[in-house]
Simulated assay, not measured.
Amino acid sequence: MTRYVFRDGRFRDRETGAPMLVPAGPLAMPSITRPMPEYASPINGRMITTRHERREDMKRNNCVEAGDMPSPTGGKIRNKAFAAKRGLTVSEDYR
């Protein structure tokens, strides 16, 4: 694995001194996520302070994120008023 050092204002190969190649496009950078607010679990009242505790609490109580729930209609539109308001058509299964 190539190791780089910072010389002359650039990262360079430690052995050859060749400048490090920078890939085209956005650079991958670490991100920092805000700490989540502390809350009491609505199921058992236990205090949840970290994301890990939240995942464990949800797993322990057989829960899923609301955004992860599948659509009851499988993404098909069945409400005529909803479809008309948005310029869509009702799915064949619900006509």
Rank of each mutant, 00 (worst) to 15 (best):
E53Q: 15
R60T: 06
N61A: 06
I32T: 10
R78M: 11
R10P: 03
L21D: 11
N44I: 00
N62D: 13
L27R: 07
Y4D: 02
P35K: 04
R55G: 09
R46A: 12
G45R: 13
D68N: 15
S41H: 10
C63G: 02
P23H: 08
N61P: 04
P70C: 03
G75N: 07
I77E: 00
R51S: 08
P30E: 14
M69H: 00
R78T: 08
P23K: 06
R12H: 02
G9H: 03
G67E: 15
D68W: 01
R7D: 10
P42K: 05
K76S: 06
A18F: 13
T16I: 04
M36K: 05
I32R: 13
G75F: 02
A28L: 15
E65H: 09
E38F: 01
Y4E: 04
I77W: 01
S41A: 07
R12F: 04
N79H: 08
R7E: 10
R60P: 03
I48V: 15
R10G: 03
F11V: 02
K76I: 07
S31Q: 08
G9N: 07
A40C: 13
S71P: 04
Y4G: 01
E65T: 12
R34C: 08
M58T: 06
R7Q: 08
M69I: 08
P72S: 06
M58W: 02
S31M: 12
E65G: 08
M58N: 05
P30V: 15
N62G: 10
A28I: 13
R54A: 13
D57G: 03
K76F: 07
E56Q: 13
V22M: 07
A40D: 11
D57F: 03
M29T: 13
E38P: 03
M69Y: 05
F6N: 14
Y4F: 11
Y4I: 00
Y39P: 00
P23R: 05
N62T: 06
C63A: 06
M47P: 08
R34V: 06
A28N: 07
C63L: 12
P23Y: 04
A24R: 13
I77N: 02
E56M: 15
I48N: 01
R46D: 01
G67P: 03
S31E: 11
T49H: 06
E65M: 12
R54N: 13
G17E: 00
D13H: 10
D8T: 00
E56R: 14
A18D: 07
M69T: 14
K76N: 14
N61Q: 09
D68H: 12
R14Y: 06
M47C: 09
M58H: 04
R55T: 11
C63V: 09
R54Q: 14
P70S: 01
P72H: 05
R46G: 02
G9R: 03
M29H: 10
E53C: 00
V22I: 14
